[in-house]
Amino acid sequence: MKNLLEIKNLNACVGEKQILKDFSFEIEPGKVYAIMGPNGSGKSTLSNVIAGNPVYSVTSGKMLFKGKDLSKMTPDVRANEGIFLGFQYPIEIPGISYAQFLKQALTSKMKYLGQKPLDAVAYIKRLKVRAQALGVTDEMLKRPVNVGFSGGEKKRMETLQMAFLEPDFCILDEMDSGLDVDALKIVADGVNLMREENRSFLLITHYERLLDLIEPDVIYIMVDGHIVEKGDKSLARKLEENGYADYK
């Protein structure tokens, strides 16, 4: 099977500080991956670099998404190609409702793909179906993007955006941080509902508990800017017992 995403010998830094060091991995279509690693190992940097956050600069290496070179694409092009990043700390956009924001996001994507944007009725219908499945109320859709939402609500809204935009590759950066068990379950159910043949997920997490709810096919262990081990679900249990001491 051809890889959805392939990263080879990637070096990236923020300012002067090198964070990703000769990083390589592959993502196959239809699989769920988890990346685990101690604080400061570069997990969040990895997700930002894949999404094209200009704060990080890539100094060398290769990133191919669906066979296309990502390095030449701006963040919006990467998004419209099918990369979605669920933020650890979602950003506020005052004065713009979620409904308005998602409409513009979907319109941009459909235009990029050469499709005719949905009309208002079709759009609302699509949004409501997705929102209901995640317990997102109409009132929440009218509120400005991430303004006045609790931590749990923000993560739920990130999940809604993902469900709504139907990306091919979803990176969830510490979706579990700051969530209680019930909130985590809602988010996990949302992800599980979206699992399908051509869609892949990359979960970035510290804790095994998320992986109990979303079962990964592959676990990568990341330490000091690169992958040190690849394995199946059992790897998580091993980590829970021994920590990262073995990799240092």
Binding site: D76, A79, I91, Q104
Partner: peptide, 28 residues
């Protein structure tokens, strides 16, 4: 903020669209 721009662009909006959206929100 750069974070706001990146967030909106990560959802598929071009840079111009993102700026316009954020400013329109500011003026609402």
């Amino acid at each position: 903020s750069d974070e706001q721009l990146f967030y909106a662009m990560q959802r598929g909006l071009s840079e111009n669209e993102a700026v316009s959206l954020i400013v329109n929100g500011f003026c609402k």
